[in-house]
């Protein structure tokens, strides 16, 4: 029967640090490409499926039927938090370097949630159903990061 014997110190496993890195390109296609171009112009576009659901961010093919989506719809730059999770200690690659919330945000005119960061300052300021608004990056380039984050919508008149 197999008996475990601790490995002697001179046979310790090899260890080396290693970084694997390549440059990648993305051809985004007619749907995601148009969405990203919209962000550059500070406009958020979704697609309407044949059943009339508005998907934001847009999907190139209807997840339910597999049909190609072609009917673009502009949606609002503010919306409602559907669900959220507080990040008390952000990591270096997170979009914000202070505590923030990951949230699913249903933009005005959309039928689906959009995952993004909400800069709410404190966990006590977050609630499901709260309204949030886009904060655009200072410079927009046609990347998803053109949306810097969302922030609580101070324009209560809209709500």
């Amino acid at each position: 029967m197999f008996q475990y014997r601790p490995m002697p110190a001179e046979h310790e496993p090899l260890h080396a640090s290693f970084t694997l890195e390549y440059a990648y390109t993305r051809s985004t296609g007619p749907v995601v490409g148009r969405f990203l171009t919209g962000l550059r112009d500070r406009r958020i576009e979704g697609v309407k499926t044949r059943e009339g659901r508005v998907l934001v961010p847009p999907a190139e093919y209807d997840p339910e039927t597999g049909e190609a989506t072609e009917d673009f719809v502009e949606v609002g730059s503010a919306g409602v938090v559907q669900t959220w999770s507080w990040v008390a200690e952000p990591l270096p690659k997170h979009p914000l370097q202070r505590p923030f919330a990951w949230a699913l945000i249903q933009l005005d005119g959309a039928d689906t949630g959009f995952l993004h960061a909400v800069d709410a300052g404190d966990e006590s300021q977050m609630s499901t159903g709260m309204r949030v608004r886009v904060r655009w990056a200072e410079e927009t380039k046609g990347f998803i990061t053109d949306i810097a984050c969302f922030e609580p919508d101070s324009n209560e008149a809209r709500a």
């Binding site: 051809s27 296609g29 007619p30 995601v32 190139e60």
Partner: peptide, 26 residues
């Protein structure tokens, strides 16, 4: 370089051509 399509669009094109050749639908 097929800069006009995403990876999904590229695969879709071949798949649609095969379905058409077979006279079939998804």
């Amino acid at each position: 370089q097929r800069a006009d399509v995403s990876i999904a669009g590229l695969c879709r094109e071949a798949a649609l051509n095969a379905l058409e050749d077979a006279g079939l639908e998804w």
